[in-house]
Design a binder for these strands. Structure first.
Length: 491
RNA sequence: GGCAUCGUGGCCGAGUGGCUAGGCUCAGCUCUGCAAAAGCUGCUACAGCGGUUCGAAUCCGCUCGAUGCCUCCA
């Protein structure tokens, strides 16, 4: 493959950097996946769709990508105190299920939703509970390094000691002094030496069902540990890209860096990438506050936020019209605007197949193609890519009107490039054409009505022609009279 | 309170030290039996106040406002 000129914004350096993978032509990428204790909401999906785009584009460039995205199926404590509650256990009690039934139920839901979005499955999707052994080994190593201590069956990471030789806070831009100065007064029951320390292993309370034996106690791993265990296991001590939602930057990713550096004495990740939040009513979507929408409820229209249902592909197109590092606010108006644009774009793409070619091109397709790649090479700038794709709407119309010309070679390049970006890179789906048998029958029936209407129009029987048009419109079938005949669309 | 990000035209949303982002809406026009659809054209914005500069919406400072993190969260 030719070396692409790809630049990635690195959260660690706060700069765009040229992307140079550790191994030529291969990329290791880890993304923090969901905690499966309830249905994924649309905000969660945005992050995974952002990284789906990145995964797809890296593959499109010719990289062999190993994309690891975990499933967090071992609950984390909600609070540091002993009274903390694990969301998976809480949900299990609520729904009267075994914890692993909860996990299974919402893992399936997650996969179903991501499939509806036409997101590619990751190369490896490991679970936290499947890697308890690896996590224990890491805790042992960190203790051996003298950077963790055991207290009452739990093990904590010694942040202050780590910070003497390393830089804790380099990802999130926090100074440990500030953190100490701003420590809130906690109830004093903690086993930690310092409030900044975080748990590597927690001893299970008697009522805690999810527990595993360890050298320190029957318990469960700390909530930053699984990602370190699974990323290093499948990608090595150092790998190219680590991604996740912006809200995981601190403390989760900061702690991952500390754990990995404590174990392996090297910085684990070359490029840290953070996808920004999807907001609703100007606030982050969040399960705990109830400010969220479930994907299925927007696909069906069963919600009181949106004016109508929106398909997964339109939703995705809407998201990709904003850059992954920008906050995106979710509203019915914005979705509707995206939907109209999307349909227009798809229409133009389809028309590409019906164009006439000439001996010369008046449009510089290679320059246009380069602009598309330049956009994506600039930190995966999908809004610019989409703006470029909208150019084909103008091309198609100008070519149809004979105002521009194109050679057969250029037209096929245009078609191929558009196809690649639309379907391979953005992973969109053309929903207009339902290739079902029912669809064919419906099409045949409507075309018959179109013929009858055109006959009526030719006979100046406008009462009849308007009746056909009106009745079909009432059924959600819109007729569109064009120069080359009448087509229809289903609303 | 601390750390960080952001504030762009009616709406959404890119980007940049000097050159039209793009989409949607709206208006006018073309087409049409009429309408819709489609197409064309038009609508020139960067929170406020200072500073740097030949030139800033883009860099710097301050003010105001919003959001995220600091407790589980994509």
């Amino acid at each position: 493959m030719k070396s692409p000129n790809l630049y990635i914004y690195n959260s660690l350096s706060k700069k765009k950097e040229k992307f140079v993978p550790i191994h030529e032509n291969a990329v290791g990428m880890y993304v923090c996946g969901p905690t499966v204790y309830s249905n994924v909401h649309l905000g969660n999906c945005r992050t995974f769709l952002s990284f789906d785009l990145i995964f797809r584009y890296l593959k499109h460039l010719g990289y062999k990508v190993r994309y690891v995205r975990n499933i967090t199926d071992a609950g984390h404590l909600e609070n540091d105190g002993e009274s903390g509650d694990d969301p998976i256990l809480k949900k299990a009690r609520l729904e009267q299920l075994e914890p692993m039934e909860v996990v299974q139920k919402y893992t399936v839901d997650f996969h179903t939703i991501m499939a509806k979005f036409n997101a590619l499955p990751p190369s490896i999707e490991p679970t936290a509970t499947g890697h308890i052994y690896e996590q224990i080994a890491i805790v042992e190593k960190i203790i051996e390094e003298g950077l963790a201590y055991e207290k009452n069956g739990s093990v904590y990471f010694d942040v202050l000691k780590f910070n003497q030789t390393n830089n804790y806070g380099k990802l999130s831009g926090r100074q440990i002094e500030d953190m100490i100065a701003n420590t809130r007064e906690l109830a004093a029951q903690s086993d930690k030496k310092n409030p900044q320390d975080f748990a590597l292993w927690k001893k299970a309370e008697p009522q805690h069902i999810m527990r595993w034996p360890s050298p320190w106690s029957d318990g469960f791993p700390g909530w930053h540990l699984e990602c370190t265990a699974m990323s290093t296991k499948y990608l090595g001590n150092q790998f190219d890209i680590h991604g996740g939602g912006m809200d995981l930057k601190f403390p989760h990713h900061e702690c991952e860096i500390a754990q990995a550096e404590a174990c392996n004495h090297v910085s684990p990740v070359n490029y840290w990438m953070h996808a920004n939040m999807l907001t609703l009513n100007g606030k982050k979507m969040s399960k705990s506050t109830g400010n969220f929408i479930l994907p299925d409820n927007m696909f069906t229209g069963n919600n009181n936020i949106l004016s109508k249902p929106f398909s997964p592909t339109v939703t995705k197109f809407f998201m990709y019209q904003a850059h992954y590092r920008s906050i995106l606010d979710f509203s019915s108006e914005a979705l509707e605007a995206s939907e109209k644009g999307f349909l227009k774009l798809m229409d133009a793409y389809r028309t590409l197949s019906d164009l006439n070619t000439s001996n010369s091109s008046s449009i510089d397709i290679n320059a246009w193609k380069k602009a598309c790649y330049d956009a994506m090479n600039d930190d995966f700038n999908s809004p610019i890519l989409i703006a470029n794709l909208f150019e084909i709407v103008k091309y198609v119309n100008a070519l149809k009107d004979g105002k521009e010309t194109i050679t057969e070679t250029d037209l096929s390049l245009l078609k191929q490039t558009t196809h690649d970006f639309l379907f391979e890179v953005l992973g969109l789906e053309d929903t207009a054409i339902e290739e079902s048998q029912d669809g064919e029958k419906l099409t045949a029936a409507i075309e018959l009505l179109i013929q009858l209407r055109n006959k009526a129009r030719a006979d100046k029987d406008f009462a009849m022609s308007d009746k056909i048009r009106g009745e079909l419109a009432a059924k959600g079938i819109q007729l569109k009279d064009g120069k080359d005949g009448t087509t229809f669309s289903l609303n």
